[in-house]
Amino acid sequence: METHPRRRAAGHARAARSHGTVEPEHGATGVTPDTGLPLPGTRRRVPATVALPVIAALAFGCFTIFRVHAAGTKGGPAMLFGLCAAVVTGALGLWLVHFQSTMITEVRALAYGALFGASVGWNYSLGGETLLKSCGFGLGMGAVMFVVSLYLFRGHRVREPHGPHRPRTAHRTHLPERVHTAH
């Protein structure tokens, strides 16, 4: 009977040595019971499904500022173009990432290609290019993004949120195995 409290104490000591992280298997919750706020020393991570579209939107906004500034628009209007580009592409990117698990592979790749192609085509037009040239460039870049994302999604079928659609191997029927006898 005496070993049970020692085992429990050893488990708490192991939890205390976990480099400041909260381990739920030891009964810790990570929040204070009275206020519900995170405990001091614990941090919550932003999931990649939020961080990556936000980072991509910020990079696209900075590129838009550069593109508009290089075309001759200086100061505040260039910053406004960049801010609008970052907000719109960020919102569309977050929406796409949120709903991508409901899409089949080809539709998801097409959605990524459409978002990328439209964004790059619009950004290309900010440099003073013609509408036809900007549409062609955006269509080409969207097609490249479609092919690349389709390759990535099909190459990593195991990690898809809803599992593989089309198995690579044919479905085998279960036939009785041949019994080998020694002569």
Results as ranks from 00 to 15, higher is better:
T3M: 06
R14V: 15
A15F: 06
A16P: 02
R17P: 07
T21S: 15
P24F: 12
H26F: 15
G30A: 06
D34A: 08
D34Y: 00
P40W: 01
P40H: 10
R44T: 12
R45P: 09
T49L: 14
V50C: 07
V50D: 08
A51V: 04
V54E: 13
G61L: 08
F63L: 11
T64F: 08
F66G: 07
H69F: 12
A71M: 03
G72E: 15
T73I: 05
K74P: 10
P77K: 07
A78D: 10
L80R: 12
G82M: 01
V87Y: 00
T89G: 09
G90L: 12
G93Q: 10
H98Q: 05
Q100L: 04
I104P: 12
A109C: 13
A109P: 08
A111L: 07
G113S: 08
L115H: 02
A118S: 09
G128Q: 04
T130N: 14
K133H: 13
S134P: 06
C135A: 12
G136T: 04
A143F: 14
F146Y: 08
Y151A: 07
F153M: 01
R154M: 09
G155K: 00
G155T: 02
V158M: 00
H165P: 06
R166S: 13
R166E: 10
T169P: 02
H171M: 02
T173C: 12
L175D: 06
V179K: 02
T181N: 01
A182S: 01
